[in-house]
C-alpha cells in the first residue's frame, strides 16, 4: 500500500509528509515530522497530552487520521513561542511552577491557549471545565489553573 502524501501548514510553515492511511496525526507529527511535543498518554482521547489545534479547532491528535490534515493549518506547542519570546501561558506556567514532570504540559498549554483565544477572561470554573480534557497527575491542577488566570491577566493587560 503506497503512503499518503499530505501537504499542510504546521506552526505557520508549509510542511509535507508521507503517512499511512490509518496513521494518527499524533504519530505522523511525532514520527514523520519530528515534532515530539505532543505526547501519547492514552491514545483514546481521554488525557489531552496530544492536544493540537487544526484550522482553529482544539483536537486530540490521537483521534485524527493523518491524511485528514491535508490542506489544513496545524498548531502545536512547538509553535507557541515567537522566536525567543515565550507565550504568556508558557511564561506563567514557568513562573507559577505549574508543571512537575512536564509530560502533560504541552497539551495543557495548547488547550489553555485555545481556551483563552475563545474566552479571554474565563472564571476559575470555566478554566477547570475548559481544561477537563487534559489530565495532570502531578500538580492537583491548582497551579495550572492559577497560571492560566495569570496569563489571561497578562494578555488582557497588553
Amino acid at each position: 500500500m503506497s503512503r499518503v502524501h499530505v501537504t499542510c501548514t504546521i506552526n505557520g510553515d508549509p510542511a509535507e509528509f508521507l503517512c499511512d492511511g490509518g496513521q494518527t496525526l499524533l504519530d505522523a507529527l511525532r514520527d514523520e515530522v519530528g515534532l515530539t511535543g505532543a505526547k501519547e498518554g492514552c491514545g483514546t482521547g481521554d488525557c489531552g497530552a496530544c492536544s493540537i489545534v487544526m484550522d482553529g479547532r482544539l483536537l486530540c491528535s490521537c483521534l485524527v487520521l493523518a491524511p485528514e490534515a491535508d490542506g489544513r493549518n496545524i498548531s502545536t506547542v512547538e509553535g507557541m513561542a515567537t522566536g525567543d519570546d515565550l507565550h504568556p501561558l508558557q511564561q506563567c506556567f514557568l513562573e507559577g511552577a505549574a508543571l512537575q514532570c512536564g509530560v502533560c504540559t504541552p497539551g495543557f498549554l495548547v488547550a489553555a491557549k485555545a481556551l483563552l483565544d475563545r474566552n479571554p477572561d474565563p472564571t476559575e470554573t470555566e478554566i477547570r471545565y475548559g481544561l477537563a480534557g487534559n489530565l495532570c497527575r502531578c500538580t492537583g491542577y491548582d497551579k495550572i489553573v492559577r497560571a492560566v488566570q495569570a496569563a489571561a491577566e497578562t494578555i488582557n493587560e497588553s
Binding site: T36, G37, A38, V77, E78, F93, L94, V103, L109
Partner: peptide, 11 residues
C-alpha cells in the same frame, strides 16, 4: 522548565 514548556524536553 523552558524545555518543558516549549515541547523540547525529551521523554
Amino acid at each position: 522548565g523552558l524545555e518543558k514548556v516549549t515541547g523540547r524536553a525529551r521523554f
